[in-house]
Amino acid sequence: MHLPNQVSKIILELLINLCYYSTAAGKALFSMLAVFAEFERNIIVERTKAGLAASRARGRNGGRPKTDTKKVIQAIKLYDSKAHSVADKT
């Protein structure tokens, strides 16, 4: 699309003035952008919660799998004994 030179200068001037936060139009622009960003974030949160709820309804639970208690106790004993070091393993 080809615009007359005068019109393109006016459009450019409007865009430049909208970007200044000190003007009323600039403040309005930034406020609207903040509203849209907050709206988008809330939509993402809602979709995530709905997806997790649907997954739980199908019998799937997210998160890290439970660790075997025997393995944890063994790891703590090995750590406390200080019989092995990282230097031994490398």
Rank of each mutant, 00 (worst) to 15 (best):
R47T: 00
S22I: 00
T67K: 15
A25H: 12
I44E: 15
S55D: 01
G59E: 12
G26E: 02
K27A: 06
R56D: 09
Y21I: 10
G59Y: 02
I44C: 09
A24W: 01
I44S: 08
T48A: 01
A37T: 10
V7D: 09
T23D: 00
S22V: 00
K70Y: 09
I73E: 15
R56M: 02
I43Y: 10
R58D: 09
Y20H: 14
R58V: 03
S8L: 04
K70F: 05
Y21M: 02
E40D: 13
K49M: 01
G62T: 11
G62D: 08
G62E: 11
I76K: 14
T23N: 05
Y21D: 07
R47M: 07
K71W: 02
T69Q: 13
I10C: 06
K49F: 05
A37S: 07
E40G: 00
V7Y: 06
L18T: 14
T48C: 06
S55Q: 08
A34S: 10
A24M: 09
A54I: 00
G59T: 07
L18K: 13
R60T: 06
L18Q: 10
R47F: 05
T69S: 15
E46T: 10
I16R: 13
I76V: 14
M32F: 15
C19W: 05
I73P: 04
A24Y: 09
Q74R: 15
S55P: 03
K71I: 07
R41K: 13
R58K: 12
R47D: 04
I11A: 12
A28C: 11
Y20S: 13
L52Q: 04
R60D: 02
D68L: 03
A34C: 10
S22D: 11
R56W: 02
A75E: 07
R64H: 08
Y20Q: 05
Y21E: 11
G26C: 00
S55I: 06
I44P: 01
F39I: 02
I16N: 14
R64P: 06
V45S: 01
P65G: 03
A53F: 11
E13T: 10
R41D: 08
N5R: 14
R64D: 09
I43F: 06
V72A: 04
G62Q: 10
N5S: 11
L18H: 13
S55C: 14
R41V: 00
M32G: 13
Y21Q: 14
V35N: 08
Y21T: 13
D68E: 11
I11Y: 09
L33E: 04
S55H: 06
L52C: 05
L15C: 12
E46H: 14
E40K: 14
A50S: 11
L12F: 10
I76A: 12
L29E: 07
F30Q: 01
I73D: 10
E38D: 03
R41N: 08
A28M: 07
I10R: 08
R60M: 08
L12D: 14
E40V: 02
M32K: 15
M32H: 12
S8G: 01
T69V: 09
A75W: 07
E38V: 00
T48E: 03
I43W: 01
T69C: 03
G51D: 09
Q74E: 12
F39P: 00
F36T: 06
A57E: 14
M32W: 06
L15D: 06
V45E: 15
A57C: 08
T23E: 00
A50M: 13
R41G: 01
R60A: 06
I10G: 00
H2V: 08
L29I: 02
R47Q: 15
Y20L: 03
L15V: 04
T23S: 13
